[in-house]
Amino acid sequence: MTQATVVDTHPLDTILRADRMPHIFCPGCSIGIVMRCYAQAVLESGIPLQQHVVVSGIGCTGRVAGYMDLDSYHTTHGRAIPFATGMKLANPNLMVTVFSGDGDLSAIGGNHLIHAARRNVDVKVICVNNFNYGMTGGQCGPTTPLGAVATTAPYGNPEQPFNLPYLLAAAGAGYVSRWTSLHVRQLKQDILHSFVRPGFAFIEVLSACPVGFGKSNNIPDGLEEMQLYRERCVLARGVPLENLSIDLRENRPIYVGNFIDRDLPAYKPVTRVG
């Protein structure tokens, strides 16, 4: 039998708060993977760590701010984007990333999300989409597929979900992509790319929440969901945005990739000389 070896150091020691471990994430949860991609991108960005700020809302994903050894702000449910907006405008030298969940960003914070996209304010948004409200125990939300079972939709969700890339594109976002927690290289590259291009960026990361979403929808194991991503994910080349909706329970392609990358003037406060 192989023995686990305890190592003294970890490559991400410089950027994670070791004194806050163990984290709260359940076994099989994807959030840690996405956090690692972000951490790696921050380290490779060449931007001094001191300039990076991470802002989260509330939810399991929202806890990420508390694990990053950066200036980190864990705000209120849905308000990470406007908080980040104020911060970026007050100090434009900061590289401000919003790291939050699908419910936080697109339900209670949905208004801020579309307006930040429209304004093209220079914050980078990483949205962990696990198709439910994980933290509060698996309720349905605006990304839960029609018919999927959730604790507040015991007979199946009666509502149509958002297709987030389509929504963000319509709101005017200059940069929109989608990966899954399986696509760690692409995801890290994409985050890195968002750092160098000015303006708003929205990166959706499809993620396993075996506890909140998986177990009630026949994907009870995080690994099984990763397997499913491996089998079904397709790079979307020329696929119309309106066809990007997802239902993990259906055997059809899950489109990933960068959908929008257009040069738009990033929001700047108005200046005038005297």
Partner: peptide, 11 residues
């Protein structure tokens, strides 16, 4: 929220 963010950045 924006005001609090700005304050946290020193404004």
């Amino acid at each position: 929220a924006a005001v609090l963010g700005a304050s946290a950045a020193g404004a």
